[in-house]
Design a protein around this nucleic acid. Structure first.
Length: 659
RNA sequence: GCGGGUGUAGUUCAAUGGUAGAACACGAGCUUCCCAAGCUUGAUACGUGGGUUCGAUUCCCAUCACCCGCUCCA
């Protein structure tokens, strides 16, 4: 089996387990479902709650410098205009036919040059070598499976097939020839026909691109071939090349030269109406991210909490996006839950004034404790480190990867952004993004709302008062040079820079922000996918069976302990087991189970990731003497190890292991 | 949004233009039962809506959902 097939099968098993054991169901299933939304069943709800609590505790409660917020999903739509979401999410967009890059229909500059177009493409002859190797291997095993009386013929026709130059038309010719001549080899014919299918695909989709003055037509041919092979045409042969001179056309993507598709609204924002009249005046949106509420409430939190910069505001909540393609089970959903922190820091200039320098990041720098002289870069690295430790704490440490966005990837307002990626069966995908966003967000809200988002920093004011005019001017010159060197976005005009420093020297600034933003549903899926494991076991009768175990970290497991009386028809065992259950239940999520054999009950709990099992037997009731009385079997999921533990010592032993 | 595929008990799969089967799972019962044991027994399904037909789960159309590619950024 190929890797792709393997991981697909793996994913299907996970989806099936999730449904079967009550982790995740399709939304509205009895009505045929609802695209891109999912429901969490009893165990999924517990798992999510555990992850949510883990995040909340490590990010807010266990820290002195982060506060919580729980804002509403509905907000004044002006917030989404200020944040840029309405513009980027809901305008008329035209899509580049080559790269699917979208541009605003009203932002396309007129282009001139030579257009090259094709009416479509037919498949070529060349079949890739690896496909041929795969083909021959499968063909051989097919031939071997033939019954004896037809084996000869099958071998003969396979030999004819395996000529040194296998091309599309040689195979096609073979298929039409074999139809008449070799009846017993029909299976091979069907196999070849299936194999050929992907290489016979043609496309009548027209292609046009704009070539800048002086570029050879050959480069357009190359792009066109790529275009058609992306659409499944193998070794594309282009149809009807035509060139034309183009003057001031708005139909091509300014960067790629690709033809732009029809202008159509791309409404990623989920629109709704606030108020019963439901007129256009009442339109607002379900939030596409939780972060903006944090920015919008920044001043209130700051004013009501006696905090000083640097500090953070964390929030967990639902967000909504009209995804074009919901995908990969719960991975890309239209309704999802975010866990976001906005960590507000001083601008580097303020740090420099106060500390005399800004610490530079270098490989191996100590990130364990925040320092006064940290600028945005160190804070950014610090949060990447913190978040990594968090993922280690929920058992995901060894499947993480990092992607540091290149300057080209970055939005113009972002200074750095790291994606924390995780290995899923369907590929390595993003779990969390940690962005250094400068003061973009608060400044945007400041200018849109006309309410100041500046804070006053007494320490800064006092430090600035000690600076000489020359020192101040040096700081300003440094910033002016940095503005000039900007490659993205407009440089800040000198007058604005000087005005900004004016405020800064008085102790006033809009804080900058580091934003670790994680997806709770993705995290839950990652945890399940990582924990999913199957082993084959041969039972006493030699029957093969597949054992499924969710090796969840005890901290996130939905059920912590299974409690079992060895037999259910003995009242004393049941009574004792229920006693133990009642004792543990107050502190841990437990599951009591008395049906079926003890082995099956262990297996059931293994499948949902319960790390511990407690079994009450006759010894617990004192059958083998007083020293074993009131002891139980404690069984460990991952090792299968069993130990004898006093009931009175159970809680003390278990609690530290699950929190 | 475009292209390809799928849709039958809880799950994984069968069969069929006329009464839908299995395995596992699930419920009840028996069992001194420590890793999916055994026996007895019970409940549960043709995604939805049209059409063709005497009759459709099966054929056709539409729709919905899911999966796989192209698009990312929680």
């Amino acid at each position: 089996m190929s890797d792709a097939k393997n991981s697909l099968a793996q994913m299907e098993k996970i989806v099936s387990l999730c449904k079967r054991r009550g982790f995740i169901y399709q939304s509205s299933e009895i009505y045929g479902g609802c695209g891109g939304v999912w429901d969490y069943g009893p165990l999924g709800a517990e798992l999510k709650r555990n992850l949510r609590t883990a995040w909340w505790n490590t990010m807010t409660r266990e820290r002195e410098d982060v506060l919580g917020l729980d804002a509403s999903i509905l907000m004044n739509p002006a917030i989404w205009k200020a944040s840029g979401h309405v513009d980027t999410f809901a305008d008329l967009m035209r899509e580049c036919s080559l790269t699917n890059k979208r541009v605003r229909a009203d932002h396309v500059e007129p282009q001139s040059g030579t257009s090259v177009s094709y009416t479509g493409a037919r498949p070529g002859e060349v079949i890739p070598a690896d496909k041929i190797a795969d083909f021959i291997q499968k063909l051989d095993s097919l031939v071997k499976a033939y019954p004896h009386e037809h084996r000869n013929e099958a071998e003969q026709c396979a030999a004819v097939l395996k000529l040194p130059d296998i091309t599309r038309s040689s195979l096609e010719a073979w298929v039409s020839a074999i139809q008449r001549n070799y009846q017993p080899t029909l299976l091979i014919r069907e196999f070849v026909k299936d194999f050929l299918k992907p290489f016979q695909k043609q496309s009548s989709e027209p292609f046009t691109m704009l070539l800048p003055q002086g570029k050879p037509v050959e480069s357009a041919r190359k792009v066109a071939k790529e275009f058609y092979s992306n659409r499944g045409v193998n070794d594309p042969q282009l149809d009807d090349e035509a060139t034309a001179t183009v003057q001031d056309s708005r139909d091509f993507h300014p960067e790629t030269g690709g033809m732009l598709g029809e202008a159509r609204p791309f409404n990623l924002m989920l629109k709704t109406y606030l108020g019963p009249t439901a007129t256009e005046d009442d339109v607002t949106y379900l939030r596409p991210e939780t972060a903006q509420a944090i920015f919008a409430q920044f001043k209130n939190v700051f004013d009501s909490s006696r905090v000083k910069v640097p500090f953070g505001i964390g929030q967990i909540g639902k967000a909504f996006r009209n995804e074009v393609t919901p995908k990969n089970f719960t991975f890309r959903s239209r309704e999802f839950e975010q866990m976001e922190l906005e960590f507000f820091i001083k601008p580097d200039e303020a740090v420099e004034i106060i500390s005399g320098e800004v610490a530079k990041w270098h490989e191996g720098a100590d990130l364990s404790e925040p320092q006064l002289n940290w600028g945005w870069e160190m804070w950014h690295r610090y949060w990447v480190d913190q978040r990594t430790k968090f993922y280690e704490g929920i058992g995901l440490g060894d499947v993480l990867e990092y992607y540091w966005q290149t300057p080209a990837d970055l939005a113009h307002y972002a200074r750095a952004c790291v994606d924390i990626l995780c290995e899923f069966p369907f590929g390595t995908e993003e779990l969390e993004g940690i962005a250094a966003r400068g003061d973009f967000d608060l400044s945007a809200h400041q200018s849109a709302s006309t309410k100041s988002q500046e804070i006053f920093d007494e320490e800064l004011k006092n430090a600035a008062a000690k600076l000489t005019d020359e020192q101040k001017e040096a700081l300003i010159q440094k910033r002016l040079a940095a503005e000039k060197a900007k490659t993205k976005g407009e440089p800040m005009p000198e007058a604005a820079v000087r005005a900004w420093f004016e405020r800064l020297f008085k102790g006033n600034y809009v804080p900058h922000v580091i934003e670790p933003s994680a997806g709770l549903d993705r995290m839950a899926l990652a945890v399940i996918a990582k924990a999913f494991s199957e082993t084959e076991k041969i039972d006493e009768k030699g029957k093969k069976e597949v054992i499924t175990v969710l090796r969840l970290h005890p901290r996130v497991a939905p059920i912590k302990v299974g409690v079992f009386p060895l037999l259910k028809n003995k009242p004393e065992l049941v009574a004792k087991a229920r006693e133990v259950y009642a004792l543990l239940k107050k502190h841990l999520n437990c599951f009591y189970d008395e049906t079926a054999s003890i082995g099956r009950r262990y297996a059931r709990q293994d499948e949902v990731g319960t790390p511990f099992g407690v079994t009450i037997d006759f010894e617990t009731c004192g059958e083998k003497g007083p020293e074993l009385a009131d002891t139980v079997t404690l069984r460990h999921r991952d090792s299968g190890e069993q130990e004898r533990v006093k009931i009175s010592e159970l809680l003390g032993k278990l609690l530290p292991l699950v929190s």
